[in-house]
Write a protein that binds this DNA or RNA. Structure first.
Lengths: 341, 341
DNA sequence: CTCCTTTTTGCAAACGTTCTCTTGACAGTG
DNA sequence: CACTGTCAAGAGAACGTTTGCAAAAAGGAG
């Protein structure tokens, strides 16, 4: 069966022949790891350039047993945070000579396993997991199989992980609201099965405690991370039927915050006049909403760099690296008109 | 140099040995293309399963000369439309047994070339370009090099392309506004160097023409596709200094629409009471804004399927496939209070 | 049971690299 | 000039599959 190559594919053999050296010499001359060497080698490189030689990555990987490729597993890329995270991972990987390959896994653990296998079948040198569940089996399986991997944006406490310090983030957000004079503060966190959700809530509680505010348990809502989850929670907190309602809300995610905004709008509550709002992740959108959203910025670039580092240089402590988030105050959290406790 | 394999890697040779057949028989028994065959083959498959054999994709690709991998080039994944597009491409590819690999190129043509090379170096069987510029050189280069490829969400009129019918989309949006009674309609399109931008504008013009409305040229603004571009355009159209202002705006993109919303908010103009607004792409966010945004939905799944088809089965006409968009009316385009004109 | 056709099998040669080992060249030293 | 050490280059064996070819086995018809 004839291969339909346009005859244009120039292989290392061609380069060697054209430069009058042996295959091995040509190979060595083009090896990027050792710096240029002697006269003849330079010649080979020139010829290769002229002929438009491109190394066949399969042959190379087959022989070398490494691919300089990392697999990234995310639930979905249409989630802006995941997309941003991947972009940073891609950048960090490429700056270290690696290529980042993504697969989306959805929310189903079964599909997640499948996606992981897909990536492993492509012989990735390591796997980066941006999937969120605390009770996920995958990290354990990967540890057992001795697959290099790192968790990103969350941790299970065992596998190498790079994430933002969610507890501090939660603290910063609520502390900001307290500093503005708020006492009636509600928190809408993510699902309880995510480490980010629980940690942000813990941080929020710490800030409340420090200020001597006893949190009302019915104002601490664990929701999903979607806009409608935020809307539902917002309705619960803000509907006219409530005897008293919070003057400030910390949403553990910008999506939730958007949902809360919609609910506030729906109930005729103005932001920031009647309600202060702080989100999380500092999505590009946040800054550009009609009422720009205060949000906790997570240093995704640092997290990405850490994750790559953990895989490329396994064994370098610490295995769990938290990067500090910062609060970006914007219009959505102004001084309240009707503050008080 | 010893390879650091955990000794766990089971190769085809092992499977063959364990099942007492030759290498070639084992290989054929595991070939997915021809359905199962005779007794012995079934046995091989069972052994392979037990041993946890996974075919080495490099060796396979090296020998076969194909990778069942498609490269997707997008400017950035943090653009929701691009992320959604990629997700659909991934799905469509996987349903045909292909794997979709993404690289982001940014806006710089230079980087785009580089990203394309990165993908080609990984021996993708074809390239899908979701980058937007009309004057892009890359499609021409790919044609010259006989690289299988398809454009997505735009066309240059020559290379195989799968996209939405932007002209019709523009028409639908403006026709909707006209049907609501609007006559003072402004259009904010994308950059003139994108086929989507110009086509949507053309469609809008057609709708205006049909209704006997002479478009005011200063109300047809070519902007970028970002939120702030929309904001700037919105300010221009809506600022209090304008003698008359439009009662309806068609934004060629949901981002632009969001910017216009912000500008309207800033100028104290209520949507939909004082201004009707229609966006484009029907981003998931659109439906969930405080004032849900009417938008033109583009069938990304069809487009993805077409693109994959064009690459996997090259030569099947037509080379340029347009899918029909539909209008999703929502709250942002209600009947105007002060219509007329 | 023979002859012919179809299917299955094994051998061995690829695919394009990399890398170990060996040989050759060259320069420096006494 | 002989000797040793350094460095570059070539030969050839991998890496794990797939596949053309020839031979063997199986199945069918008479």
């Amino acid at each position: 069966m004839e291969r339909a190559v346009p005859a244009g594919i120039v292989t290392l053999k061609d380069v060697a022949a054209a430069s009058g050296v042996s295959l091995s010499t040509a190979s060595r001359a083009l090896d990027e790891r050792m710096v240029s060497r002697s006269a003849a080698a330079a010649h080979v490189r020139k010829i290769a350039e002229e002929l438009g030689y491109r190394r066949n990555s399969f042959a190379s990987s087959l022989r070398r047993g490494e691919t300089r490729t990392l697999g990234v597993l995310v639930p979905r890329l249409s989630d802006t945070v995941m997309a941003l995270m991947f972009e940073e991972l891609e950048r960090a990987a490429s700056s270290r000579g690696y290529f980042a390959m993504v697969a989306t896994s959805g929310d189903d653990p079964e599909d997640e396993r499948g996606a992981a296998e897909t990536l492993l079948d492509r012989n990735v040198d390591g796997l980066i997991l941006a999937t969120a569940r605390l009770d996920d089996e995958l990290p354990r399986l990967l540890r057992e199989r001795r697959v290099a991997h790192a968790l990103v944006l969350r941790t299970d406490g065992i596998s190498p992980s790079a994430l933002g310090d969610d507890e501090v983030g939660g603290y910063l957000a609520v502390r900001h609201l307290i500093d503005l004079g708020h006492r009636n503060i509600a928190v809408v966190t993510g699902p309880t099965f995510t480490s980010s959700g629980t940690a942000r809530l813990a941080g929020a509680r710490r800030a409340l405690g420090e200020a001597g505010v006893a949190p009302r348990e019915e104002w601490l809502i664990a929701a999903g991370y979607g806009i409608e989850d935020g809307y539902t929670a917002g309705e619960t907190l803000l509907a006219g039927t409530q005897p008293t309602r919070p003057t400030a809300i910390f949403a553990a995610n910008d999506n939730i915050a958007m949902g809360v905004m919609a609910a506030a709008h729906h109930n005729g509550i103005a932001i920031p006049d009647d309600l202060a709002l702080v989100g999380y992740n500092d999505t590009p959108l946040s800054a550009r909403l009609p009422t720009p959203l205060s949000s906790v910025r997570v240093p995704l670039d640092q997290i990405a760099a850490n994750a790559i580092e953990l895989i490329v240089n396994p064994g370098t402590e610490p295995f769990i690296r938290r990067s500090l988030p910062t609060l970006i105050p914007r219009q959505s959290s102004g001084k309240p008109k009707h503050a008080g406790g």
